[in-house]
Design a protein around this nucleic acid. Structure first.
Lengths: 107, 107
DNA sequence: CTGAAGCGTAAGTCGTAGCTTTCGTTCGTG
DNA sequence: CACGAACGAAAGCTACGACTTACGCTTCAG
């Protein structure tokens, strides 16, 4: 199934810690240590999650001195939103089919 | 963090198998056995995944004889889409902040 | 009423993702 | 130049979840 490669972003957001990170980054860009301060996990763990999110195209890094400022990547978020939009639209079509099928179901 | 309960739908879509199921259901409602035929996993595994998706509010079941026709729940999909939309919007605001901060960064 | 088809559930196994710990690297500060 | 801060990477451990197997229930057909 071709979509198995496209759901990389979904696996990234599927983890609670990463979801929390994305939430924090949605408010404003932050450094790794700052993110770790607001999460119940270590800084290294945050770093690993950020790597996954970065590979998924959901976040981007910007080096400032010894710090690395991470921010959300709107394009990545938009990509996921687009897929959900497709599901949503097709689901509505499916509804129509079900209703129409019900008419012939009695035969 | 309050959002930890709300990401139930994200964990559901985070699994490749469940994502594939949602994809199939987006095309049209299907029975459990039909879904299993198009996936590399057993029918029971599909059944378990459907349970997770149902708990997450992403799918709904409809008994027809011995079969159970599953379909997407547009409301659940819309809920996730709404969260992504919030992220996306806040991310753009964050961009503005970064740009403005850059002005003062040189000092 | 008997048999089969279609599902859901429980128990058990196994892989893997997430977390911590440790270490190496880069950059700023005195 | 030496020290400390901030971060990434590798190794190891543990726990959770995905899948299978086996079983019981419901519904339709004969």
């Amino acid at each position: 199934m071709a979509a198995f490669k496209a759901h990389q972003g979904w696996e990234a957001l599927g983890d609670p810690s990463r979801f929390a990170i994305v939430q924090c980054l949605a408010e404003r860009p932050r450094a790794v240590g700052d993110l770790a301060d607001e999460l119940p996990i270590s800084r290294q763990a945050v770093s690993q999650h950020l790597r996954v999110l970065k590979d998924a195209g959901l976040v981007a890094a910007q080096a400032v001195g010894t710090r690395r400022i991470y921010r959300l990547n709107p394009a990545g978020v938009a990509a996921l939103k687009d897929q959900l939009d497709t599901f949503w639209r097709r689901a509505l079509d499916g509804y129509q089919n079900v209703i129409e099928d019900k008419t012939e179901e009695g035969s």
